[in-house]
Amino acid sequence: MKVLVGIKRVVDFNIRVRAKTDGSGADIASVKMSINPFDENAVEEAVRLKEAGVATEIVVVTTGAANAQDVLRHALALGADRAILVDTAEPLNSLATAKVLREIVKREAPQLILMGKQAIDDDAAEIGQMLAAFLNIGQGTFASSLKVNDGKITVVREIDGGQETVELNLPAVVTADLRLNEPRYLKLPNLMMAKKKPLETIALADLDVAATSKVTTINVAEPAARAPGKKLNNVQELIDVLRTHAKVV
């Protein structure tokens, strides 16, 4: 079974991102970038499926500029076999990204498409579901566990108030929650070896995808700061605060 994993290069989760002074976007010119955490879970799951003899080949794909190669190499070092960079000068919106991935799926014909449940920059949580709709296949979003069985996949999904289990025909799209697994540590020798693994670059223009979007960002700003709080001196003061306020609740 071939597995395709969609990954995104995002600002590292430890970084506090600021707005550009002209409000045109987030100021990410010189900050540390990493693979989107959920996508690392998706790659890890693919590698485990391969180790278990379920997956035969793992292909990772991202759309982005040339510098997005670093997250592809990261995924290769974790155990992916091959990488594809769809080279785009400008970042794409969700719909266009899903269309790019649809074109890659047409070429690669994977049985399982693994993605993250959301990218931690836009926090959209859209692309997996869009891709599943484009391909007219099932979707197992926010997955905390999965099991491949006889042309089908069983997915436990994290939902409000609990969990839901669904069974999907393969091929299917599954989007990873952080709870799906604990990604392994990246070993330096593996990173060296990953340099030898194939990384193909495809120009966006070679795919049949319109990159424009009718949803545009007109301003990005930092939210108003919360008024400074008060440090209390002892438990009694805290009890008084709760008595006063908890009463009105």
């Binding site: 506090r16 991102v17 987030a26 931690i120 960002t217």
Partner: peptide
């Protein structure tokens, strides 16, 4: 919100 609420984006949907 963007970036875990660290920023707010105003978006236009046409």
């Amino acid at each position: 919100p963007l970036y875990a609420g660290g920023l707010n984006a105003t978006v236009q949907n046409n």
